[in-house]
Simulated assay, not measured.
Amino acid sequence: MNDKNFDYLKDQVKYTGFGEALEGELKENILKQEPTFILKHDAFYGTDKVAAELSFKKSEQSDMYFFNSYKVNLQKEDRPESLEQTFYINRGNNITLKEAYNLMEGRAVHKELTNKEGEKYNSWIQMNFKSTDTKGNFELKHYHENYGFDLAAVLSKHPIKELANDSHKEDLINSLKKGNLQSATFLKDGQEVKQYIEATPQYKTLTIYDDNLKRLDTRQAKEQAQGEGQSAKQESKKQQNAADEDGPGDQQEKKQRRKKQSM
């Protein structure tokens, strides 16, 4: 057995999100020297079951094996039909199992990718469930850096408590970039309200859910973005309206009364 090849594959499997549980099976299959083999792995995210099949193929010129792809079957408790997608492995920044699950849930993931010329670039990717390729996989939509979605800037428009702490802010941004539906503490009318957010690069915004994971409509989300600043504006407007209601004559009488009192 090629030990260096085994170590490389072991790390590749581990850092693609499958952990170390498959090491034994991986080694056994390499020792058999079969042309191809598949390893199976199950994971659960809440009540959602993710069944993965990892595909390996032996080189025709040497004893080296390659981890080519893994197929994911997503079965949701409240959905009779399952969803399938194959994710391909390359030398770059592979899509992890959790990121694959997030993509299949419809959320966007931020990745460092490599183009045909070998140049690296950053892009948000998201599944297009309305279009499939020749192999039956859902196509991936890309939102490159020049698309104009700045996650940090979008977050700053919302009254989120975690943004006040640099470490918590970084953790929040990193979690959203992985495609997670992330909890966040919103400051509303002086109260702390737990809600959930996800990055939505297509519309250059956030999608916000309440603590029961019910999606807020556009109007509610806009109010959240205005936050406590809106309350301040409303208070200022009330004061201005009060002054307007006095009218020119009333204001003149008040001035005269204050003048007599001073005399």
Rank of each mutant, 00 (worst) to 15 (best):
G92M: 05
D11C: 07
E23Q: 15
N128P: 07
S62G: 03
I208G: 03
E162P: 00
R79N: 11
D166E: 13
D217K: 05
P80S: 06
L31N: 09
E117C: 01
Q251G: 07
T47E: 14
A242F: 12
K14N: 09
Q224T: 10
G118T: 07
T185C: 02
K111H: 03
T114A: 05
T86F: 02
G118H: 05
F56R: 04
K58Y: 04
S82F: 11
E105W: 05
H110W: 04
G46H: 11
T114G: 05
E60P: 05
Q182V: 12
G19V: 07
L206C: 03
K27I: 10
S59P: 08
K76I: 04
E139I: 12
L26P: 04
Y143K: 01
N122A: 00
Q261D: 11
V154G: 01
E228A: 12
E223S: 14
Y8L: 08
K27S: 11
Y203K: 09
N146I: 08
A243Q: 15
I208H: 01
L22N: 01
M127Y: 06
K214I: 11
M263E: 13
V193Y: 07
N90Q: 12
T132E: 11
K76M: 14
S131C: 07
K58L: 05
A21F: 15
F37R: 03
G179C: 02
F6Y: 15
I125G: 00
Q33P: 00
H144V: 05
A43V: 07
G46L: 08
A21P: 03
E53M: 13
L97P: 06
K141P: 04
D189P: 10
Q202V: 09
L26Y: 02
Q126T: 04
D11W: 11
A199D: 00
Q226A: 13
E235I: 09
S231L: 09
V13S: 00
K259A: 10
F18I: 03
K49V: 08
E228G: 10
N68P: 06
I197N: 04
L163Q: 02
F186E: 00
K40V: 08
F138Q: 00
T114H: 06
N94E: 03
K49R: 15
N174F: 05
A225C: 02
K194D: 10
L22F: 12
S82M: 07
E105R: 12
I125V: 10
S236V: 09
D246L: 15
D133N: 12
D48W: 14
Q226R: 13
T218L: 13
F186D: 02
Q256D: 13
E25D: 15
R79M: 13
K130D: 08
F186C: 01
E198W: 05
K71N: 09
A243L: 13
L140K: 09
K260Y: 13
F56E: 03
D63L: 09
E105L: 06
D42M: 07
R107K: 12
K32L: 11
I125L: 00
F186K: 01
V72R: 00
I208D: 03
W124A: 01
N241I: 09
Q126M: 14
S175N: 09
S156N: 14
S262Q: 11
S59A: 06
I160R: 02
H110P: 00
Q33M: 13
E34G: 03
V109T: 02
V72T: 05
R258P: 01
V13M: 03
S175Q: 06
I38M: 14
T134Q: 15
A43F: 09
E170W: 10
T47G: 11
